Simulated assay, not measured.
Amino acid sequence: MTAPDRAAPAVARTPEELARIRAGLGRTALVPTMGALHTGHRGLIAAARGRADAVVVSVFVNPLQFGPGEDFERYPRAFEDDLRACAEEGVDVVYAPGVEAMYPGEQIVTVDPGPLGDVLEGAFRPGHFRGVLTVVAKLFHMVRPDVAVFGQKDAQQLAAIRRMVRDLAFGVTVVGVPTVRDSDGLATSSRNVYLSGAERTSALALSRALLAGADASVTGPVGILGAAREVLDAAAAGPVPVEPDYLALVDAHTFAEVPPDHRGEAVLLVAARVGSTRLIDNVPLTL
């Protein structure tokens, strides 16, 4: 439940303003976002609130993680609504820097995601994870959180951030929160607002495919992928086609595709376009 009578959070627009506010906080949890907050973000904030004395939510649409022709310019921006949501959820600080504050000059030094950045989302969005890791690293330095909370819907992103934290010795505990879904099963996403009614109906094939794959988990990787692909193939032939970029069953840590005899943790992922909107979803499995 929300608490509309909570005080408005402090707002910092520059690293200097943030540093002054941060000095008065105790154990701090960071929830990095690009704004357009929805119920999934509220779940992240709730998870953060239970792990720290103070919660900082960053709101920054990061140009470094968008490629040519992607939706940087039209990405939903609703800061006043975001601020109200943060107040309702008991957020202490909202860090909302402009591009000039985050990138005061050309960003020459960036964070290389390694092999994880070249597959799946990394293959379809070259440079995306380099941009994600670079901005997250900068936020970690600016906010100095004890805990950082991310959604498992962006499973590959979460894995890349965990690897960066481990390999570069960031003193941050990374927490992953299970995917939040709307009542119809669609994973919550800021990009869902792009969908028309008919497109949203078609987009439900993503979660149905994942559920079909999960239900077939006892049959092993080949059966899982076959069951999920059958749903996607039917959706591709529908009146509002679902156009998959990939369907993959991968190792939960390396994101390499699993062999047919795989046993243990895995993640079933899908990315697809519905109309002009690109959506991703996934479900963790144990084989």
Rank of each mutant, 00 (worst) to 15 (best):
residue 1 M to P: 15
residue 2 T to Q: 15
residue 3 A to G: 11
residue 11 V to Y: 05
residue 15 P to D: 13
residue 21 I to W: 07
residue 22 R to P: 01
residue 24 G to K: 08
residue 24 G to I: 12
residue 28 T to S: 00
residue 29 A to M: 07
residue 31 V to Y: 02
residue 32 P to C: 09
residue 33 T to G: 04
residue 33 T to S: 01
residue 33 T to W: 02
residue 33 T to K: 09
residue 37 L to R: 03
residue 37 L to P: 10
residue 39 T to G: 15
residue 43 G to M: 14
residue 43 G to Q: 13
residue 44 L to G: 03
residue 46 A to T: 14
residue 47 A to S: 13
residue 48 A to Y: 01
residue 49 R to I: 01
residue 51 R to M: 12
residue 51 R to P: 10
residue 54 A to F: 11
residue 55 V to L: 11
residue 57 V to A: 00
residue 58 S to R: 11
residue 59 V to T: 04
residue 60 F to S: 11
residue 62 N to I: 03
residue 64 L to N: 00
residue 65 Q to Y: 14
residue 66 F to N: 07
residue 67 G to Q: 03
residue 68 P to V: 10
residue 68 P to M: 07
residue 70 E to V: 08
residue 70 E to G: 12
residue 72 F to G: 09
residue 75 Y to W: 09
residue 75 Y to T: 15
residue 76 P to T: 14
residue 79 F to A: 13
residue 82 D to C: 08
residue 82 D to I: 10
residue 88 E to P: 05
residue 90 G to V: 08
residue 91 V to I: 15
residue 91 V to S: 04
residue 93 V to P: 00
residue 97 P to W: 05
residue 98 G to V: 14
residue 101 A to L: 00
residue 105 G to C: 13
residue 107 Q to E: 12
residue 111 V to T: 04
residue 115 P to K: 00
residue 119 V to C: 05
residue 120 L to N: 01
residue 122 G to S: 15
residue 127 G to S: 09
residue 127 G to N: 02
residue 132 V to Q: 03
residue 135 V to K: 02
residue 147 V to R: 13
residue 151 G to P: 00
residue 154 D to Q: 05
residue 162 R to E: 11
residue 162 R to Q: 06
residue 166 R to A: 03
residue 168 L to G: 02
residue 170 F to D: 14
residue 171 G to P: 12
residue 172 V to R: 03
residue 178 P to D: 07
residue 178 P to K: 13
residue 185 G to T: 01
residue 186 L to K: 06
residue 189 S to T: 12
residue 189 S to K: 11
residue 192 N to Q: 04
residue 207 S to V: 11
residue 212 A to H: 02
residue 214 A to T: 08
residue 219 T to F: 06
residue 223 G to N: 09
residue 224 I to Y: 00
residue 226 G to K: 07
residue 228 A to F: 04
residue 229 R to P: 00
residue 230 E to D: 15
residue 233 D to P: 10
residue 236 A to Q: 08
residue 239 P to Q: 14
residue 240 V to G: 14
residue 242 V to I: 11
residue 246 Y to C: 09
residue 248 A to C: 09
residue 248 A to H: 12
residue 258 V to Q: 04
residue 260 P to M: 00
residue 260 P to T: 05
residue 263 R to Q: 09
residue 263 R to L: 07
residue 263 R to H: 15
residue 264 G to L: 03
residue 265 E to Q: 07
residue 266 A to H: 05
residue 268 L to K: 05
residue 273 R to S: 09
residue 273 R to I: 11
residue 273 R to D: 14
residue 274 V to E: 00
residue 274 V to L: 04
residue 276 S to H: 09
residue 278 R to W: 07
residue 279 L to H: 01
residue 280 I to A: 05
residue 283 V to Y: 02
